[in-house]
Nucleic acid binder design. Structure first.
Lengths: 313, 313
DNA sequence: GGAGATCCATATCTCAGGCTTATCAATCAT
DNA sequence: ATGATTGATAAGCCTGAGATATGGATCTCC
């Protein structure tokens, strides 16, 4: 059986007239008769009782009429669904955010996608550090990441979309909270809370800032993410240098202070260079149109291959 | 698009291998590649990403895989459904019973059909007098009738399945209730309750019995069916002659008495001679196998065309 | 009641297109 | 590097879907 048979059958069942059905199908009547006859042969039963004056459905034909209509409609729907997905108007995008970006960029991105691509489902992985995002992108379990360069590898394309300075997070009752702005030198004797993992991009920036200020920080604790780090700071267990975006997620007992000479941290979109998922392409297009790519230079220089490349493998 | 495309696509999507899929489809590999390419062209998007070493589904392909599986399964189901209906193993049979037959034959027939053809739905029209059944059968709103001959018309086939004598239904406190058996002569002075409609087959038999006993009955009331008639009898508004089968539906206050010289009434199955509905054919076969046809001669002589023929038109 | 109209089936022919075989190009394994 | 594997491409065959012409049955309308 072929769809042809069902389409022809449906036309005859509706018109109850071989001639008119053939017209509608842009087909000569004998061809239609022949096709119906084939279908009946394959099913082993007549579907119509024909006289020269009347065409009627047998019980089996009556049943098939409803089935055929459902099947043909299902096929139409499927085709439309495939086209929607192919155009990226519908689909699933798995997107990850670093802890700090979750509070600023996540809402903007989610809102933009929701507005421009209502059929797009977002699977959001929040608070995923850069190495985890690189791994997820590389193994295909993520489609798009909002992460902190540097990282590269020819497999991934990066697009810088924001630049944050590091700011000081400190307990509200800490002496440094009194100052409007601090310098790295002020932090020389403080206990630091870092992110877990020596490969953290934020850690790298923190250590670099300290080194440039001429000291090595004392590490009091390590936190797996911002959500753990800030409470530790509030508890007075140490200070932390965090991306300025973290200010969007305030916590009682923690205050943020600008640091005059701390390093900057970029925030970038990352995706597999060879990814052709229409959902990704459509989302990128929409984000670009929304101006989310503008903040800094569009072509983030794939500078020195850093430690993060190794995390990919 | 044709089912061919979906079938081929499903095979490739499952095996992720053009060669093996082609084998399974009993098809050369280039033909398969070509068909998939056609499908992709029609849908306007690739469904697979192929390298010479690997075949993977695109998101659109992933979507279509599920859809195709559902559609192909739906078609299989439809074909099976059509075949079941064609074999008469499933369907709908609209069957009518005269009032008296409803209590004896209806349960037997319904039970037999239910046991032998579990997929058969019965639409039961109870307490339908013969003319109404003939009309229903003729205009196609009924498939099978259990009615009281005589009736004929070449459009209907009759099969006598039971022969009932008329019995007297009389109020329990009526003098005639005292006798074990009465004769027609005993009824000469009684008020009679007849069925509505001069064309009722039961009425015909009642009137014939009276005529043969040499009197014309006094008609006190007319009832549209047994369910109305018996209460009238119980109320003492008159006596009635009813088919013996009515005894199966006793009513408080009504007693039945044999009548030595009353007419007999046949009970017959009736269906359109040219009816090819497999549901009907299957039910007839099942009923015959269950011995329901035996009680009297199988070929009920299509005797004198009676008034009932006219009711047909 | 006969002539014409209507309508589905049958017969025959044609040609598009689906399938085959043969071959190529790319990738992987050893 | 070489052979094996695999999907794409090329070219030819041949089935079978559809077109045309016609037949036969039924209905309509003078």
């Amino acid at each position: 059986m072929e769809l042809r048979h069902l389409r022809y059958f449906a036309a005859v069942a509706e018109t109850k007239h071989f001639g008119r059905a053939a017209d509608r199908l842009h087909l000569a009547q004998p061809a239609l008769s022949q096709a119906i006859r084939q279908l009946e042969g394959e099913l082993g039963t007549p579907l119509f009782v024909r006289t020269t004056r009347q065409v009627d459905l047998t019980p089996a034909g009556e049943f098939l009429r409803e089935e055929a209509a459902r099947i043909l409609a299902a096929i139409d729907d499927s085709v439309r669904g495939v086209r929607r997905i192919a155009e990226g108007r519908q689909g699933l995008l798995r997107i990850a955010f670093t802890g700090s970006a979750a509070h600023t960029l996540l809402p903007r991105i989610a809102r933009t996608v929701k507005r421009e691509l209502p059929g797009m489902a977002l699977e959001i992985h929040a608070d995923l550090l850069t190495p985890a995002q690189v791994a997820g992108l590389t193994d295909g379990s993520l489609d798009l990441g909002v992460l902190r360069p540097p990282t590269s590898g020819d497999a991934l394309t990066l697009r810088t979309i924001a630049r944050d300075p590091l700011v000081l997070a400190v307990a509200a009752d800490h002496p440094l909270a009194e100052k409007a702005e601090v310098s790295m030198a002020d932090l020389r004797t403080e206990d630091f809370i870092l992110f877990v993992g020596s490969r953290s991009v934020v850690n790298d920036a923190v250590l670099r800032s300290c080194r440039e200020a001429g000291f090595t920080p004392t590490v009091a604790h390590e936190a797996p993410g911002t959500t753990v780090m800030l409470p530790l700071v509030a508890a007075g267990l140490g200070v932390a240098l965090v991306p300025a975006a973290t200010r969007a997620a305030p916590l009682d007992g923690v205050v943020f202070r600008d640091v005059s000479d701390a390093a900057y941290l970029d925030l970038a979109l990352a995706w597999r260079t060879d990814d052709t998922d229409p959902a990704l392409l459509a989302v990128l297009e929409v984000l670009e149109a929304a101006g989310l790519f503008s903040p800094t230079t569009p072509d983030s220089a794939p500078d020195s291959a850093t430690e993060l490349d190794e995390a990919v493998r």
